[in-house]
């Protein structure tokens, strides 16, 4: 049996004030999958991602990335991952080229390797004309492109995208979709969280729905979205929002 790209077992995350963000969550994503991770705000999606990438420390449970323990052997595990965060966690005075270049540097990429990769990403996300402006001077869409380029600089085997198209225009959304489908076609594994269900339906093959820190529904997209009402109804039913939704209508 091939090693999964991501294997989370019994993950639990309790914050200092006792708030249980993730509760006994288990998840397996196979290599090459395009996996949709859905759930309402505060369901535990970002916390799970933060535990996988080292931004948060799991309270208990295990996380393996391509068979490498993400806590005990964190250096090797992190080489395999690229993260596009939901928030713009960058130095706002730095330029897009600096931001992407520094990230490549943290991953140990040599100067020539970084330059080739950054030139490609600047071109791919049409950041060339803006690469010497300060990040804080960029529009929301351009900022999103920069953090995407940063996530891709190390050409990760597992790409984690936490609401990458939130607040971006249609043009970028389509550029991004095309690119994600292309790199997924090349064998890259992608974990995507999004509030846009049509985006998940269009891109993902497998889906998990999380609510109150637990996975409440998991399966292939076709299984989940195949029922009457499609993915939206399945999502609302799984998160317990169906009654409210119907009442609202």
């Amino acid at each position: 049996m091939p090693t999964p790209a991501l294997c989370i077992r019994n993950l639990r995350k309790v914050y200092r004030r006792g708030n249980v963000a993730v509760d006994n969550l288990s998840l397996t994503i196979n290599e090459g999958d395009f996996f949709g991770f859905l759930g309402p705000n505060g369901a535990g999606k970002s916390t799970t991602i933060h535990c996988v990438t080292g931004i948060a420390e799991p309270t208990s449970g295990t996380i393996e990335i391509f068979g490498v323990d993400a806590v005990k052997n964190y250096r090797e595990a992190r080489r395999l991952v690229g993260l596009c965060t939901q928030e713009f966690n960058v130095d706002p005075f730095a330029t897009p080229r600096q931001i992407v270049d520094w990230m490549g540097g943290y991953f140990g990429m040599a100067r020539a390797e970084r330059k080739t990769r950054i030139d490609f990403l600047m071109d791919r996300f049409e950041l060339g004309p803006h690469e010497k402006k300060a990040f804080r001077e960029l529009s929301g869409g351009l900022k999103r492109r920069v953090v995407l380029a940063r996530a891709l600089v190390n050409d990760p085997r597992l790409l984690i995208l936490d609401e990458p198209t939130a607040g971006v225009d249609v043009e970028l959304r389509r550029i991004l979709w095309r690119y994600l489908q292309e790199i997924n076609g090349d064998g890259r594994t992608i974990l995507l969280t999004s509030h846009y269900l049509e985006e998940v339906e269009r891109l993902c093959r497998d889906v998990a729905i999380v609510n109150n820190g637990r996975i409440v529904r998991q399966g292939t997209k076709d299984e989940i979205a195949g029922a009457p009402g499609g993915l939206e109804n399945a999502y609302l039913a799984a998160t317990g929002a169906a009654a409210d939704h119907i009442a609202g209508q």
């Binding site: 990438t53 080292g54 931004i55 964190y74 250096r75 090797e76 992190r78 080489r79 991952v81 993260l83 965060t85 928030e87 966690n89 960058v90 130095d91 706002p92 520094w102 990230m103 943290y106 991953f107 140990g108 940063r150």
Partner: peptide, 17 residues
């Protein structure tokens, strides 16, 4: 400032010790 603006996360998610 790297904590306040959260760009310390860049190094946390990287393979740096």
């Amino acid at each position: 400032f790297s904590r306040f603006l959260r760009f310390i996360e860049e190094t946390l998610v990287s393979p740096m010790s």
